[in-house]
Every structure is written in C-alpha cells, then in structure tokens.
C-alpha cells in the first residue's frame, strides 16, 4: 500500500519518540493496543504546575500509520491543557494524515491513548489528594 507523504514523514522522522518515568506523579501514561493487528502504543504526557502539557513522548510498535498517528498527536499535545487534549479526535488525525479507511483504527488508537494518559495522570493526582 502506498503511504501518504505526511504519514511517511512522521514514520521516517518520528517526533518525540521515547519514554518518561511512569512513576513520576507529573506524568500520565496511556497504554493501548489494537488486538486485531497486534499493535501496541504507549503515550506519555508530562503536566506542569499550571496543568499544561509540557512534554509528550510515545513508543509504538505497529504499522507506519500507527507510528505516524502517535507521532502527530505528541506534537499536538504540547502546550495544551488536559481538557483541550481530550478534544483531539481521531477524525482530525485521520484527516491530517489522509489515512485510508483500513487504517482509521490507528487514529482511534491515538485518541484512546490520549484519553488513557489523561485519566492516568488525573488518577495519580487524585490519589495524592
């Protein structure tokens, strides 16, 4: 299958690959998988004292579209508040990368990863009181 240029760019030069310390209270981790194809995606955000995402990292083992989707959302996440982050929808990701219908689930994965990371961060903050 021929990949779109923007997908290729994110695939060949993925932004923000890496890990943050998942035990850091300022860090939220989202781990999601696409069981139907065996992909796994880890998305992490660091939230500063103002509640703004200062850093976002990802690690994805999967197809080019899954890597591109997670790379793209890490770029979008930086500088956003948590509520703004939750407004990122898979349709925007799919549109930006011009994903074909069979690859839409990769963008869904990225959206789920954001939700899970934000929920993880909020859970941590709550348990700290």
């Amino acid at each position: 299958m021929a990949y779109n240029e923007r997908v290729l760019d994110h695939y060949e030069n993925p932004r923000n690959v890496g890990s943050l310390d998942k035990n850091d209270p300022q860090v939220g981790t989202g781990m999601v998988g696409a069981p139907a194809c065996g992909d796994v995606m880890k998305l992490q955000i660091r939230v500063d004292d103002q509640g703004v995402i200062s850093e976002a990292k990802f690690k994805t083992f999967g197809c080019g579209s899954a890597i591109a989707s997670s790379s793209l959302v890490t770029e979008w996440l930086k500088g956003k508040s948590l509520d703004e982050a939750l407004l990122i929808k898979n349709q925007q990701v799919a549109e930006e990368l011009a994903l074909p219908p069979v690859k839409i689930h990769c963008s869904v994965l990225a959206e789920d990863a954001i939700k899970t990371a934000v929920a993880d961060y909020r859970q941590k903050q709550k348990s700290m009181g």
Partner: peptide, 9 residues
C-alpha cells in the same frame, strides 16, 4: 499490553 511493550523494548 505492558508485557508486550517490555518484550518489544
């Protein structure tokens, strides 16, 4: 999923 990620890493 964590297990899978660790294996991959």
């Amino acid at each position: 999923l964590m297990e899978v990620m660790e294996q991959r890493e």
